[in-house]
Nucleic acid binder design. Structure first.
Lengths: 194, 194
DNA sequence: ACCAACATGTTAGTTACTAACATCAAAGGG
DNA sequence: CCCTTTGATGTTAGTAACTAACATGTTGGT
């Protein structure tokens, strides 16, 4: 097939850029690394960089956890309380990611938290995840209407708990294990709020 | 005094810049308004702009709610459960701000939510507020140590509930009243999580 | 062999933001 | 009343992220 060759080449180029970028970011820092330098390192022009990543930040931020989480949440029975659906889905998805890429996840999280420009975009991504959870939890999904306040608050609290766990995990150099921290964070939400 | 004259002049210049900026943002949009144009409108050079606001975003984002919230939280008796301290403090501070600047608050919130660059920075500010709450709630404040996970989760959930309420309020053109929405959001956290 | 599609390069912008130096006005001491 | 110092502002010249327009090559189908 024709498309296959194209797709593979695109994927290779994208990975090359991402790889070079992360290498340079870790070695010299995010701000000190220019897009031109990344492009040079990856053997492309700086325009090619922007064809693959709309902004410099996206090289670090792009991941595809959101679709996975959405599927997992929708897969949980609607008879469960919403917070339980989210907790279980995140626990499930997280262990998959965690066992596979633990070290990479820690390095990337550190870079994200250390770099102001990346932090800002990261928080915005989290609020996008919140909106995604709202839609996934809302069965009466009238395709455009916003979810009721209760579901929005639950989605927000869940994202916040997850974030707090990840931040704490990174600040403590990866101890204790992230899935355990996430469990503890949700336990606080569910039983220790007062 | 000498300082008074200086301080007043600085304050006037700052307000002039902020005022011109908001006017232009509302009229032509954030991205379509250049810093140079704002400076011209305010009758200063573009460098003066950056001496008062480190970035273009800060013209819209700078407010001083955080110190107020911190004081109010610390003022609540430590015998109360943490979430109740935060809820009460926010309710208290909010009604003050709300009754005084309701319209301005709505306009500004709309602008913030409509503009991607501002949204990103806004979410980051909220996470700064979360860290502030963590410190305010932590009595054993060992000046550098991070708060225990329980308090971090509570602080995060509180900020998230407040944010969700504000966003919902702005999306519904200011109905119902913001303080009521905030109350409802915290009620969900405290009694409707399962 | 030729044509269409697509990835890439080149070039020339715009704009946020920084740094170095100049200017000007007011403050305060002699 | 001058003179020095200090703080606010302007000017100029840069850097770097991003955009738009157009050119070039490379691949796949006919």
């Amino acid at each position: 097939m024709a498309q296959d060759w194209r797709a593979r080449k695109r994927a290779r180029t994208k990975e090359a850029i991402q790889h070079s970028a992360l290498r340079l970011f870790l070695e010299h820092g995010y701000d000190a690394t220019t897009v031109a330098r990344i492009a040079e390192e990856a053997g492309v022009s700086h325009m090619t960089f922007f064809r693959y990543f709309p902004t410099k930040e996206d090289v670090v931020l792009s991941d595809d956890y959101d679709p996975m989480i959405e599927e997992l949440v929708r897969a949980r029975p609607t008879s469960e309380p919403p917070i339980e659906r989210v907790r279980a889905a995140i626990a499930q998805g997280l262990t998959a990611v965690y066992t596979a890429d633990q070290d990479a996840l820690l390095t990337r999280t550190r870079l994200l938290l250390e770099t102001p420009a990346l932090r800002a975009r990261l928080w915005e991504n989290l609020h996008a995840t919140q909106r995604l959870l709202e839609r996934a939890l809302d069965d009466t999904d009238a395709t455009g209407a916003t979810a009721p306040l209760r579901l929005r608050v639950i989605a927000g609290a869940s994202v916040s708990a997850l974030t707090t766990a990840v931040v704490t995990w990174a600040e403590n150099d990866g101890h204790p294990e992230l899935p355990q921290l996430v469990d503890e964070a949700f336990a606080v939400l569910e039983h220790q709020l007062h």
